[in-house]
Amino acid sequence: MSGAHAHALYYHEHSPVHRAPAACKLAAHLAFVLIVVATPREAVWAFGAYAVLLVLVGSLARLPLGFALPRLAVELPFVAFALILPFIASGERIEVGGLALSRDGLWGAWNILAKGTLGVGASVIVAATTTLPELVHGLERLRLPRVFTQMAAFMVRYLDVIADELRRMRLARTARAYDPRWLWQARAIAASAGALFIRSFERGERVWLAMVSRGYEGSMPAVGPGAIEARWWVASLAVPGAAGVVCVLAWIGLR
């Protein structure tokens, strides 16, 4: 892990979006996706407007267009579900290119693809512009229980250490010509998982002892920048604000 605690999706840049406090970005992210989900699927133009908003924020963050595309793969199983929907959904059928497809199913597929893709886009922008410590700090700012955010802090701090341990175990198995193809050959993998658990747990105990010996009494001192300036909140919440206007217009337009 580099000094900046970068992660797989982090994109190093200097931009207002990168500088914005994580709490503001997380709040804006949550509000934005909730608004997108609450938008009626028939208002196709509204989803275009949301996409334009995301592209604007993405270009403000100087993210290359296409940065988000590989990440869309995470929603593939649901894309598959969306693609079969027009064939299996009930209700009125319409003719599309010689196939009798369910009108309801087509709308449902559009709904899942549009909202899911916008959601991944928003997630990618926030993840690309926020480091792990900033994220944990932001969750704390948003009043998640402190026990929870402190566990999250330890988790993200040791994620790469544990994942590297797992990688070394896999290398060791492979070096001993272990190449299982069937479930009943999986014992060595389970043994690795067991060993990994014991090592993780014992590391946790060692970390705790090391902290106690340095005066730890059950909670970490609050660190990070002080109060968030109001302009950051205004700027961040302008994005879901604009999306909210679009959503209201979309509902009115349907009447």
């Binding site: 988790m155 299982p180 193809r181 069937w182 690795s192 990994l196 946790g204 902290m211």
Partner: peptide, 29 residues
């Protein structure tokens, strides 16, 4: 877990995260 809660649960969560990356064979590769 008392005051051990944060480091221990955090490390176990990191373990679960890593364990989810562990691929096991199912059938025919």
């Amino acid at each position: 877990l008392a005051e051990r809660a944060a480091p221990l649960a955090g490390l176990v969560a990191a373990f679960v995260f890593a364990a989810q990356m562990l691929n096991f064979p199912v059938a025919a590769g």
